[in-house]
Structures are given as structure tokens and as C-alpha cells.
């Protein structure tokens, strides 16, 4: 079927994206983005709003078709090998809504049913701290609770690779720390994580490497410490400003 993928050894990267290109009505959202994520790695995609973060990870997850370039996820083409990729890939989308009138427990049951070897429901709810909301309808949850449920559902199939788009945006500090602990737990299990963020603290704490995006292009790829050193800065915040010329927090 696809020679480059079937020849790859088991140590093949979790994600290989080569020269991704995406255009929306004449505006280029993603321009020539390449990135590589190794198995078990946690890689952050950092950038201001409109930098092309979401478009990039959605192309990697197979939710958008690139206008140019190639993606391989665990050696598979997310467009062509859709069914297989979906079984090993968990996705938390930005502002994805779920069946509003279904309860937390019903939604967890529904999403678990899609996968051959799902994680236990109680474990999923425990991870995101929603045990007490089992019988609350999705539409009655707070924004933060909806987000936490969405993270739990991304993990429902016990994925080997997770794409988290704005993991902790809108969460209170306590929930945020809980989600960080959840991601660290994924790392311990050898799960690969691609994390879209614009929170420096989060990226610094969780990510082995960071892909810095600006205006649809990769500005730098390095460890958080490497980025700081490269920019001759003292903090990741300062490094971000130096490398992109933009203030991260101002844009929100």
C-alpha cells in the first residue's frame, strides 16, 4: 500500500509531518510546516492565536486534508488509513461540543464503545475529577467541566498518541494542575502527546520539546531550555518574544 510506512521500524516516530501546507480562501494558514515527534515524547505546539497551531494538529489528526505535504501517524496516513489511525489516536478538539442532553456517564459509555480496548469508565472520570458529575447532562456542565470531559473522552480508547488542543485553557488552577498530572501519567505509560498551548508554564513543565509557530511557519524547534538559550533569554516568555516578536499573553 504505502512503501515508506510499511518499511519503518517499530522505533519509527509517532508523528512525521513534512512540509504541510493549508490555505483557507486565499489566506495561507499553515506554510511549509514540518515536525517530528518520537514515541513517548511530549511535544508542545506554541504560538499566538492565528499562528496555525490548530490547523497543523488537525491535519496531523486527519481532521483536515492538507493542501500540500504529507503526514504519517505511527507510520500510517491519517487520511488513507483512517480507521486504523482512529483506533490509536485520541483527540481533544478546541470547542467541540457533545450530545447536550446526554449525561457524563452516558457520553463516556458512548465514546468507550467505539474502541476495542477502552480504559475503564471510572478511571477516566477519576483522571479528570468528574466522578461527582456522572449524572449531570453535558449542557449543564460548566465550561471547565465540559473541557475536562472532552479530555477524558480523548483518552477513552487508551490511545498511544493523544492530540490535546488547548489542554487547560479556561480551567481553574486546581483543574489545570490535575490535567498536568494526567499528562504526566500519560508520559509514564509511554503515550505520545502533541499539546497545543499558549501557556508558557504548561509547556515548560510538560514538554520535552517545543515547536514554535508564527504566522503559519515553524520559527524554532527545541527543548524549552534550548529555546531560552537560543534566544539568549532568561525565561521561555522572553524567548518567545525574541523569536516571534510577539507577546503571547497580550493576544488573548
Amino acid at each position: 500500500m504505502s512503501p515508506p510506512t510499511s518499511a519503518e521500524p517499530s522505533g519509527a516516530p509517532a508523528i512525521v509531518a513534512e512540509r504541510l501546507h493549508k490555505r483557507y480562501r486565499g489566506t495561507t494558514a499553515v506554510h511549509d510546516v514540518s515536525l517530528r515527534v518520537h514515541r513517548g515524547e511530549i511535544v508542545g505546539v506554541l504560538g499566538v492565536n492565528g499562528a496555525g497551531k490548530t490547523t497543523t494538529v488537525e491535519m496531523i489528526a486527519g481532521l483536515r486534508r492538507p493542501d500540500g505535504g504529507t503526514v504519517r501517524v505511527l507510520g500510517l496516513d491519517p487520511q488513507r488509513d483512517r480507521a486504523r489511525v482512529r483506533q490509536v489516536l485520541g483527540v481533544q478538539l478546541q470547542d467541540a461540543y457533545l450530545h447536550g442532553a446526554l449525561t457524563v456517564a452516558e457520553l463516556v459509555g458512548l465514546y468507550r464503545s467505539f474502541y476495542p480496548h477502552p480504559r475503564p469508565a471510572a478511571e477516566l472520570l477519576g483522571l479528570v475529577g468528574l466522578d461527582g458529575q456522572r449524572h449531570v447532562r453535558f449542557e449543564k456542565l460548566s465550561g471547565g467541566q465540559q473541557q475536562r470531559l472532552s479530555i477524558a473522552l480523548a483518552l477513552a480508547g487508551a490511545p498511544r498518541l493523544v492530540v490535546l488542543d488547548e489542554l487547560t485553557t479556561g480551567l481553574d488552577p486546581r483543574a489545570r494542575r490535575r490535567m498536568w498530572a494526567t499528562v504526566e501519567g500519560l508520559r509514564d505509560d509511554g503515550v505520545t502527546v502533541l499539546l497545543v498551548s499558549h501557556a508558557m508554564e504548561e509547556v515548560e513543565r510538560l514538554c520535552d520539546r517545543v515547536v514554535l509557530l508564527d504566522a503559519g511557519r515553524v520559527v524554532a524547534t527545541d527543548t524549552p531550555a534550548g529555546l531560552v538559550a537560543r534566544a539568549g533569554a532568561t525565561t521561555l516568555d522572553d524567548a518567545f518574544v525574541t523569536l516571534t516578536g510577539k507577546q503571547l499573553e497580550d493576544v488573548e
Binding site: S6, L74, G75, D81, A83, R84, L110, S113, F114
Partner: peptide, 20 residues
Amino acid sequence: MSTVHAVAARRPALRSWLVL
């Protein structure tokens, strides 16, 4: 061979349809 190729392109089971 990558282990992922052992993953069959399975569609959700009948039970999944019932749940839905």
C-alpha cells in the same frame, strides 16, 4: 514492522451501534 500495523482496521462493534 511497526507494531501499529497489527492494528486491524476494525469498525466499532455491533454493541457500539446499539449504544449509539
